[in-house]
Write a protein that binds this DNA or RNA. Structure first.
Length: 643
DNA sequence: CTAGGGTTAG
């Protein structure tokens, strides 16, 4: 008990209820007199004003009552506080607080709880905590109010600390407490302990607790546990469905998210804003433009919902459909940093750098303050268009103009920009001067830069740094081995291969996806599984020979350009995107855009191939790789052959 | 009187 007291004192709490913790100045003249029971007439008038949410009249009525020596009781005070909350009247709220404690009146615990929750709703956590500390007795509600307030304010340690103190004081948590404290969990250990605790207390079947559990498990990357909690439920509500769909979508398991969404509809639930946002996110991850378009129809019901519109905007950007993205953006009544950042990054990634920078100016003109991610989009636009001066300017001034410290990602953009512009030395210098330690991604960026400019020594150095930090990175091994092979360093080649064998590293096969009739078709290098594979191969060969007739030369020597890491043999002819393109030509009507998503970067040969196909077949082809988008039209690509 | 789910990059 002593430790608890000490601890509570530390947080501004006195446990001794024998001392008089209240030292507020009495407001009424009848200080010290016992309170009269409320008079029915005056009191009725007062309560009526409260119900009408007429705060000024209610306060006057209360003063009039006090002049008659009549005081409000807990119930009426609580009505007055509701009135203050409805009017967002902070000062009057504080005044009511003083009245409650005037004349030596000892308010009931529940009234103090209401006052605390009022301060929490006004976001005055210090006031709430002070009042909490002065309470003679704290019940579950008092504790839960504080824990929930800290959890919402992202003060996780504080929330967990109060949870422990609550237990030590012998107050048992209820389902409200668990659903609040779970939101503050930052480690798996804590969650498991809490999970055990709620099972012990028989509270784990509550839907609120369950949805919080699902959410926290999936945020900690423990999807298995989240799914387990979800499947064990006999009755589910909409929020529980949203928790699992959101968890899956956020963990890049779009397929499973869409599957659960179907099940949810089959179970008779109607999607709300949160459901649709997660479903859109799942579509975004899978580049499911047509499914996303269908969802758009339902989004129209909630057309003022900012978050939902941001998700819709992103879906169109990431599916490479900039026309749709622009029209959503223009129609949005309210736009926040995320809306602008999404659109800027979307334009940049799709190769429309100038538009992205223009939009950035518009954003600033409209008074929205850019954040960390906005600047990333801006730098990405510069690096994409080779705008060295602009990029360097934005990079150097971001701290001064917007108060944002450049992070690893910002350095990455600039290293990329300098590298592409051939300023490899400057890029190296930047890596050396970074305040934050360069990580594998940084070195991989430098590797990319040195590769584009055939700087073999630097490429080898950067690749070795990558492998030091990320020893399982198959792509880098393959690349390094190819670089050695190109320099006839066969001993090094076999050493790399030995290391890969030893560590059991296999590279991810190249895979491309295309959506036809809202169905996803997946193609893997040298695929044989697709039902139409024979026809696809036949047509691909015809196409390649037709293209060779107009000057296409398959490029099998792409050692320093092999961003793809796929095999360097005949399978080049059958890189997954080539299969997907042919399938697209076969299955989509001649006017429609062929959109392909792939898991690896596109190689030089496929890039040339696609440009020629787009021209010969009069098609627009959009390929989204893990970093960039390529819009092929009339024999050119939006990336300017620079990726 | 206290509680759960959704958006930008990597």
């Amino acid at each position: 008990m002593r430790t608890v007291s000490a601890k509570l004192k530390h947080i501004g709490t006195s446990l001794s209820s024998s001392s008089r913790p209240y030292s507020l100045t009495p407001l009424a003249s009848s200080h010290g007199k016992p309170r009269n029971p409320p008079s029915p007439t005056l009191l009725n008038e007062f309560v009526n004003f409260c119900y009408q949410r007429d705060l000024a009249k209610a306060m006057n009525a209360m003063a009039a009552m006090e002049r008659h020596g009549i005081y409000a009781d807990s119930i009426t005070y609580s009505e007055l506080i509701k009135c203050c909350l409805a009017r967002n009247a902070v000062e009057q709220g504080k005044l009511v607080h003083k009245h409650v404690f005037s004349n030596g009146y000892q308010p009931k615990t529940f009234l103090i709880n209401i006052l605390i929750s009022m301060y929490v709703k006004f976001k005055l956590l210090d006031e709430a905590q002070a009042l909490f500390g002065q309470m003679p007795e704290r019940n579950v509600v008092s504790w839960t109010t504080m824990i929930s307030a800290y959890a919402n304010a992202k003060l996780s340690d504080k929330a967990l600390e109060f949870f422990v103190l609550m237990l030590r004081e012998g107050v048992l948590p209820n389902m409200f407490t668990f659903s609040s404290v779970l939101r503050a969990c930052n480690g798996l250990f804590n969650v498991r302990q809490l999970h055990c605790g709620m099972i012990k207390l028989g509270l784990e079947s509550d839907v609120f607790v369950r949805s919080a559990l699902i959410d926290v498990y999936s945020k900690l990357d423990e999807l298995k546990d989240a799914i387990c909690v979800f499947n064990e439920m006999e009755t589910k509500d909409l929020v529980v469905w949203n928790s699992i769909i959101g968890g899956l979508a956020q963990n890049n398991d779009g397929d499973e998210a869409l599957d659960q969404f179907k099940k949810m509809k089959r179970a008779g639930f109607t999607a709300d804003q949160a459901t649709l946002t997660s479903v859109l996110r799942a579509c975004t991850g899978l580049a499911l433009l047509e499914v996303g378009r269908q969802v758009h129809v339902h989004v129209l019901k909630f057309d003022v919902d900012l978050i939902l519109n941001n998700a819709l905007l992103d879906m169109y950007c990431k599916s490479g459909s900039l026309e749709d993205a622009k029209s959503v953006f223009e129609r949005m009544v309210h736009k926040d940093v995320i809306s602008w950042s999404t659109m800027i990054a979307g334009l940049a990634q799709n190769g429309f750098s100038q538009d992205a920078l223009k939009l950035f100016d518009l954003m600033k003109a409209s008074g929205i303050k850019p954040n960390y991610i906005t600047i990333l989009g801006v730098l990405f636009a510069c690096s994409h268009a080779g705008l060295v001066d602009d990029g360097s300017y934005y990079f150097r001034s971001m701290k001064r103009l917007y108060g944002i410290d450049p992070g690893r990602e910002h350095y990455g953009c600039i290293i990329d920009l300098l590298g592409r512009a051939g300023k490899v030395d400057e890029a190296v210098r930047l890596v050396q001067e970074m305040e934050c330690e360069p990580d594998a991604v940084t070195w991989r960026t430098l590797l990319g830069a040195s590769r584009v400019h055939h700087n073999v020594d630097l490429a080898i150095y950067a690749a070795k740094q990558v492998l030091k930090l990320d020893p399982e990175d198959a792509g880098t091994y393959v690349l390094l081995s190819n670089i050695y092979a190109n320099s006839q360093r066969w001993e090094d080649v076999s050493e790399i291969r030995r290391q890969m064998r030893e560590k059991g590293i296999t590279k991810e096969p190249g895979c491309s996806w295309i959506e036809v009739n809202k169905q996803i078709h997946a193609f893997i290098v040298g695929d044989t599984a697709h039902p139409k594979i024979n026809e696809i191969n036949r047509r691909l060969n015809q196409l390649i020979h037709k293209l060779m007739g107009i000057g296409y030369v398959p490029d099998t020597n792409f050692v320093l350009q092999d961003l793809e890491g796929e095999q360097r043999d005949d399978s080049l002819w059958y890189h997954s995107e080539k299969l997907a393109i042919v399938f697209g030509l076969m299955s989509l009507s001649s006017g429609s855009v062929i959109r392909i998503r792939k898991n690896l970067r596109i190689c030089g040969d496929c890039h040339t191939f696609t440009k020629l196909v787009a021209k010969m077949e009069c098609r627009v082809i959009v390929i989204r790789d893990p970093i960039r988008y390529h819009h092929f039209q009339n024999g050119v690509c939006s990336c300017g052959d620079y990726w």
